[in-house]
Computed example of a mutant assay.
Amino acid sequence: MAHYEEVSVSGFQEFNWAVEQHNGKTIFASFTDSKDAGGKSWCPDCVQAEPVVREALKHVSEGCVFIHCQVGDKPYWKDPNNGFRKNLKVTAVPMLLKYGTPQKLAESQCLQADLAEMLFSED
């Protein structure tokens, strides 16, 4: 059984709601593409990063929250004015970050198990 809470959301508004619900806790967030109706991803790096991130989650401290957020379809993601880019400075997918801090991993960094483990295990 996981020693952290995991929340899956889709879109900018749901992400903000999830953050509000867990105010005061350490929040880690993973931003990935949204899969189509058939379960197919438009971001090959997101597909490759998923098992690496899942494995690294074993290093998350007790009581933390992990939010997995799907950012939307490719046209929405490419819009420079989407909420993720404009308000959260999420400029790439996949992206892992410790919410409220400058600590983050983007794109190919998310494929490196040692970096993901380090992000999750740092206090």
Rank of each mutant, 00 (worst) to 15 (best):
I27H: 02
I27V: 03
A29G: 04
A29R: 01
A29S: 05
S30P: 06
S30Q: 08
S30A: 12
S30N: 12
S30C: 08
F31Y: 10
F31A: 10
T32V: 12
T32S: 15
T32R: 15
T32H: 14
T32F: 13
D33L: 01
D33M: 03
D33K: 04
D33P: 03
D33W: 09
D33T: 02
S34D: 10
S34W: 05
K35P: 04
K35N: 01
K35F: 09
D36E: 00
D36W: 13
D36G: 00
A37C: 01
G38D: 04
G38P: 02
G39L: 03
G39H: 04
S41N: 05
S41V: 02
S41P: 05
W42K: 05
W42M: 00
W42I: 00
C43S: 08
C43W: 10
C43V: 06
C43E: 10
P44W: 00
P44E: 10
P44Q: 09
P44L: 03
P44M: 05
P44N: 08
P44T: 02
D45E: 07
D45I: 05
C46M: 09
C46H: 12
C46I: 00
V47H: 07
V47Q: 09
Q48T: 09
Q48K: 15
Q48H: 11
A49R: 13
A49D: 03
A49N: 09
E50Q: 15
E50W: 14
E50L: 14
E50D: 10
E50P: 06
E50N: 13
E50T: 13
P51G: 08
P51S: 07
V52K: 15
V52Y: 15
V53I: 15
V53D: 12
R54I: 11
R54Q: 15
R54F: 14
R54D: 07
E55R: 11
E55K: 14
E55D: 01
A56T: 02
A56Q: 09
A56Y: 12
L57A: 10
L57V: 04
K58L: 03
K58D: 07
H59S: 07
H59F: 06
H59L: 06
H59W: 05
V60M: 14
S61M: 10
S61G: 14
S61I: 06
S61P: 12
